[in-house]
Simulated assay, not measured.
Amino acid sequence: MMATLSNTGKVLSFGELLLRLCPDEAGEWLADNHLPFYVGGAEANVATALALWGVPSAYLTALPDNFLSSQLVAYLQSRKVVTDTILLQGERVGLYYLPKGKDLKNTGVIYDRAGSSFAGLRPGIIDWDKALEGVSWLHLSAICPALNQAVADVCREALQAAKERNVFVSLDLNYRAKLWKYGQEPVEVMPELARYCDLIMGNIWAANKMLGIPLDDTLVEGGEKESLLQQSRLTSEAILERFPRCRTVANTFRFDYEEGIRYYTTLYTQNELEVSPEYRSRQILDKVGSGDCFMAGLIYGFYNRLSPSDTLAFATAAAFKKLFIPSDTTTSTVAEIQQTMSAYAN
């Protein structure tokens, strides 16, 4: 049975809260004794964006019971995120290191998440009756099941609980090669989770790597646009055929060139492929969190009953604007995003 989308409940984002530490590539942070940091984590980025845009937003994670966690929870609450079901257990907050301006897919990213409170989750620990009370939409990403088998099992537990309660589910196919280190390939784990999802977001390469969806091997990132759009349609149709619960698939295309960056997206639903305007810029500030902002934009649009084309336009503009914000989370308001939409409208 497919979930019926309701805009009367909260959107619950489930994932690991992270701190991003940003050493500069030249090593000047050592001499300056100054190391910038940001609060992040894919699902937390979605939760804070939704709260900023007026969508009732809740966040579920696991944190140690100490003063640092208290400060982090207070930070989320200051961003209007509901934190009532955050679980206190374990000993540490997960970290990752990435220089400013670099992409999380960059080989230089360093994860320090082993042994974190979230990585210590096990099935049966979370009270899903409590966690899903008043929730109409559950969001999670492929980063969580990449940590270890037990957390992957918790993700399945969450999805089963959502299905039993007719909660709409979205999944972001974030692929992080450095995290899949526990003996399982993504394609051995993610299809079992994807079958519970109503909306799946990612890109054509992630769908191939994580769900086993066929991909034309001749296609390269930054290749001919019409061929990529055609593959987006084929990938979307294949996902819908393989996972009957899913009714909507979104794909992003972000390419770096010497002259700057190109960004466009697609949304496949109701047998139609929507294509966003193409955004270009010579310079950006921070690539981290743009995909999360796109996902939040999709949720915002569908939650507010926007049309598929308007939903895609909003999500794409939100993601593009995030490239100019030096943090993991967006600070762009709905009005600012709408101004960007107007500027880039065809």
Rank of each mutant, 00 (worst) to 15 (best):
L199T: 11
I213V: 15
L140N: 03
E192G: 13
D112L: 09
A177C: 00
A74S: 14
A161F: 07
D198P: 07
G183W: 03
N208A: 12
V151P: 05
G134Q: 12
A142V: 05
K102T: 02
D103C: 05
F168P: 01
Q184L: 14
D129K: 08
E157P: 00
S116F: 10
D112P: 09
S141E: 04
P214Q: 08
Y175K: 05
Y182K: 06
L95A: 10
R79C: 15
L219A: 06
K181N: 15
E185S: 13
L132V: 07
K130Y: 10
Y75V: 04
K105N: 10
V167N: 07
P186T: 10
K130W: 02
V154A: 08
V189P: 09
N148L: 07
I213C: 04
E91L: 14
N174T: 01
K181T: 14
G94H: 05
F168C: 03
L140C: 08
A152L: 05
A206Y: 02
Y96R: 08
P145T: 07
W137G: 00
Y75S: 09
P99D: 13
E192N: 14
S170R: 00
Q184S: 14
R92S: 15
C144F: 07
A131I: 06
V93G: 04
P214L: 08
K130I: 13
K209S: 15
K209R: 13
I86H: 07
G90Q: 05
S136L: 11
K130F: 12
I110W: 06
A131P: 09
G94F: 13
L104R: 03
I200F: 10
G120L: 05
L179F: 00
I110Y: 10
K178Y: 01
K163V: 11
S116H: 10
C197S: 11
M210F: 04
K102W: 13
G115A: 13
D172W: 02
Q77C: 09
E185V: 11
A74R: 14
R113D: 03
F118I: 02
L215C: 03
K163Y: 12
D153I: 06
T107G: 10
A142L: 04
L72A: 01
Y97H: 09
N208Y: 13
Y175M: 05
D216L: 04
F118E: 02
S170Y: 02
V154D: 00
W137A: 00
K100Q: 14
P99Q: 12
E185R: 14
L147R: 04
F168A: 03
N166T: 10
A158P: 01
D153C: 02
I110K: 07
M190H: 08
L173N: 01
G183A: 02
G94C: 08
K130M: 12
E157H: 01
V73C: 06
P186N: 10
E192F: 06
P99W: 10
D84S: 15
P186G: 05
D112W: 05
A142W: 00
W137V: 10
L121C: 06
F168V: 03
I86V: 14
A162K: 09
I200V: 11
A114K: 15
A194E: 06
A161N: 04
N174S: 00
L87N: 04
K100R: 15
L179W: 07
D103L: 08
W205Y: 11
L72V: 03
D216P: 12
L121T: 01
R195Y: 09
V73I: 15
G101E: 12
V151W: 03
G134L: 11
C197R: 00
D84H: 11
E91S: 14
D103I: 01
S117E: 06
Y111K: 06
